[in-house]
Design a protein around this nucleic acid. Sequence first.
DNA 1: CCGTATATACTCATAGTGAGCATAATCGGA
DNA 2: TCCGATTATGCTCACTATGAGTATATACGG
Lengths: 336, 336
Amino acid sequence: MKGERPIVIGLNAVIVAVTRESPRILTISGSSVSDAGAHASPDAQLDVLPFGPLDPEADRTLELSIRRWVSERTGLELGYVEQLYTFGDRDRVARSKDVPRVISVAYLALAREQRPSGSYRARWRDWYTFFPWEDWRGGQPSVIPDVVEPALATWIDGVRDRAREERLERAGIAFGLRGSTWDPDRVLERYELLYELGLVVESLRDRDRPETTVDSPGLGRPMDMDHRRILATGLGRMRGKLRYRPVVFELVPRTFTLTRLQRVVEALAGIRLHKQNFRRLVERGGLVEGTGRLDTRTGGRPAELFRFRREVLRERRAPGLGLPGTRRGRHTVDGP
Amino acid sequence: MKGERPIVIGLNAVIVAVTRESPRILTISGSSVSDAGAHASPDAQLDVLPFGPLDPEADRTLELSIRRWVSERTGLELGYVEQLYTFGDRDRVARSKDVPRVISVAYLALAREQRPSGSYRARWRDWYTFFPWEDWRGGQPSVIPDVVEPALATWIDGVRDRAREERLERAGIAFGLRGSTWDPDRVLERYELLYELGLVVESLRDRDRPETTVDSPGLGRPMDMDHRRILATGLGRMRGKLRYRPVVFELVPRTFTLTRLQRVVEALAGIRLHKQNFRRLVERGGLVEGTGRLDTRTGGRPAELFRFRREVLRERRAPGLGLPGTRRGRHTVDGP
DNA sequence: CCGTATATACTCATAGTGAGCATAATCGGA
DNA sequence: TCCGATTATGCTCACTATGAGTATATACGG
């Protein structure tokens, strides 16, 4: 019969900021995770994303709830906020039937980086700490040839015929092998594949015993529960969003040089962009306008300071920064 | 204090099919709405989307839950399913504090049309019944100049200066006025604007008394609770998805003529497409392959039957049917 | 005042896209 | 049998977007 196991609902936030060339997310680190909710793992070492229960009366909408409690607990005022995904797998928090089923409505939020305050043990972390294979700014990360590809090869050869073909194809698409292009957006797909392969600590933990916290070689810092999966979802969404909405501007100061803007995009997308084309895109696309002022601290020739042109929102249909490879064509890395 | 008002969680489905040139959604119509859940309005006339409570133990994931209960109640086997959005506004079901707060996780699903079976009072309805202003296949729907535009004008002139500018801009973007292009995807934006204007019956009901069920002139069939908003979200998502994922093929038979395929896309997008360019897109894009067989029942020259090329999924990055206006440029209607 | 570093401008080849013209294959009736 | 209507299919053209590369401008430190 239904109705025996209670259901609780929580809110979850993936809060993104960028410092210089480092994309960051807000995490709650260390031990007193249990402050955050009733259902925390006993493991004291793991990070979690900010989350908490939903107060059924306090706010008119879920988004307002998120904004309020992030602000109350960390002092951060969020800029752009959008609903990310609702996570509700039966065993995502615990496999026991004695523990309530937790449905988490996750939000993606952008903030200009500020030091978080408050009693909450919040801190910013570079998101590539959790996903080292996602940062291609310096070329292909070494974990891929060293660890991922061999593991994929074994996995692929574990079955035959049709099934083998499917694995081959899936691995190719996810990691840009065999003539496919590396697609920065497929973050979740890659994480899930690594999870399936058992390369990611969480999958061992979920399959075997909670105590398993072996450091997998170069495969990033784990998180508690399914929070790394939530984060992967958020990172993928963030990258996708970059393409067709001018969201970067939520992450940079009011005026900025084009190089600075480019660095922020590159940090998020995890790839290097062609400088001249980036300028063209952003200027001719009407996304920015010059202020006439210059920034002389750049090293060489001083750079003009630009600002975001809000008007673009009504002019163009989908103003974003089309990352390369939007159509087809291979992406080449363009050394720093 | 929190915790006094209970929270319940439900699942909600927007199930899409296309019959000939009519895009349809599955609705539960008529009186015994209360079968579907504990919290139904007393009004016997209104349609709802299929929805029900979540069984916390039955299925491993929410998506499996949706598939199971749709199949149990209507006999439909769903094809493509994706999570749509989670609706959790405090007063979405009732304003009273004595009624639990209902969080609904909505899914978008595609099905080839079949007659629904089972005790559930399910039926297909053309979705333009609910959104008459969204169907531009025969040119601009008359409600827009007749009803919407005058109402927008009044609304815009209700304030001054900056605020007026903002309204002007918002209306322009949503309905493609003042040099903006009609964007088929902005379904939710338009619905919400009409709701704010009070043109849509639901907004009167929510503001005043539940008994208000006046037929608004040409502004479509209302639904119970916020289900029409959910539907608008689904329709918008569906249209967006068309652009970059080959989802249409879930809605057509295994083989089809290109004209038939085009009609289905047009039905969903609510606009007419340029025939030759549609062919080019779909053929040269590698989305379909000819079967060699012909369909002679088309009237003029027989048309070749095509099938979907699954392989495209691994070849191209984002294979969809880029509707016109993806970049900029005005969309022209191309009379039937 | 020269080398280095960064910023900005311009060119070129190619691919995608909106629009329209031209040709092919069927049918029903004159 | 041939013609007009009807639908399918093929092709051209202009224009824009984009990936890539070359060239010029303006600062700094010696």
